[in-house]
Design a protein around this nucleic acid. Sequence first.
DNA 1: AATTGTGAAGCATTTCACAGCT
DNA 2: AGCTGTGAAATGCTTCACAATT
Lengths: 216, 216
Amino acid sequence: MRKPKIPEAAIKRLPIYLRVLEETAAADIQIISSAELAEKTGFSPEQIRKDLAYFGAFGTRGVGYDAALLSRRISRILGLHHGVNAVLVGAGHLGHALARYSISRHKDVRIVAIVDADPAKVGREIMGVVVRPSSDLVQVVQEQNIKIGILTVPAAEAQTTAELLQQGGVEAILNFAPAKLRLGPGVFVQNIDLTIELQSLAYYTSASEESSPSEP
Amino acid sequence: MRKPKIPEAAIKRLPIYLRVLEETAAADIQIISSAELAEKTGFSPEQIRKDLAYFGAFGTRGVGYDAALLSRRISRILGLHHGVNAVLVGAGHLGHALARYSISRHKDVRIVAIVDADPAKVGREIMGVVVRPSSDLVQVVQEQNIKIGILTVPAAEAQTTAELLQQGGVEAILNFAPAKLRLGPGVFVQNIDLTIELQSLAYYTSASEESSPSEP
DNA sequence: AATTGTGAAGCATTTCACAGCT
DNA sequence: AGCTGTGAAATGCTTCACAATT
């Protein structure tokens, strides 16, 4: 019932504001204007004000925003204020890197469980989290109240794994597998496909300015 | 002079079409319609046709697209047909994972060089590529005709490293560092910020549906 | 008969411009 | 005087509907 119709792009900017606000508050600066926020994030002041206005009026006219307060507000909007549990599915090189990265830095989105299909990896510890077998996935998600799944499995296994995540009760998936997930409603999927990112970058390179309008 | 005004979103879809087309051609299927492509990619047929039409008329009315031919065309549009060289800057866990992933799978965008600031990592080999010191960055980019930079350095070093990449002649950067890069024109920057992805996912979770409209 | 290619309509997001507070 | 909050305009992207082509 809540959540009107806020642009996905705006949601993606909130964590950036959050980062800058935390730095600001840490530097004992109390008030920050949309212009300063714009300077630090690279977005326009109007866009920042509009993004924030979707959720309420957090600033003071003629003054600006209270950095610490706004930071807490955004945390709450995102649902980070009491932490969200995540499971990492696939402990390959990428999964390993994400686990280190994420477990050490974030305490708001926490990787509390790791599963892998490879028996050789099961039982090993990554940043203090013991790898469990894929067969435990649904159970792990249910037991640990996990809301986010991070998928770093091979493309061929992505769909079935995603279904297990949904079955367990996961509500959002960060999918690194180069596969289109087809899930029932109630699960938000965000894809990060490194091959796509690299290949599309090539377009913006002089390599794509080729002449030769004839047959390839 | 070339490159009119094609939506970035359309460019990002091209590699997905490419992937499906290659699978299609590999399965010895010659002709594919926009409807079939839509089924396999999850985009609408109209969108696919419009995306392709930005670059020319590649299909046959009443029939469809020649999979192998369209695949080659898209390769060429993206500039992948004769390969693009990339440098990985930062051989930490994430960089390591990307190198394995990328060097093994892609031959169109090739990581031909790796540099790292840590002397302990310099000289080591990752997937057959020897890690060189950061001080060699500009030279490496120039010598090996590198057009793409992949940044996996700490946020504090991202800006200066990016400037060195530009100085060497890089034209596109895939930036994993949680920092806004400010570069002169001529360099296209694509950011992938894993913290942002994870934190924004939390919004789509029941964790963000909190009541308590009072002070945080 | 079937499917592409495309102008026009529709929708979403960003930018503008200024009224409204402090 | 200064900065926020917000309707309105502008821009950009997607979907529609159909003419064009094989």
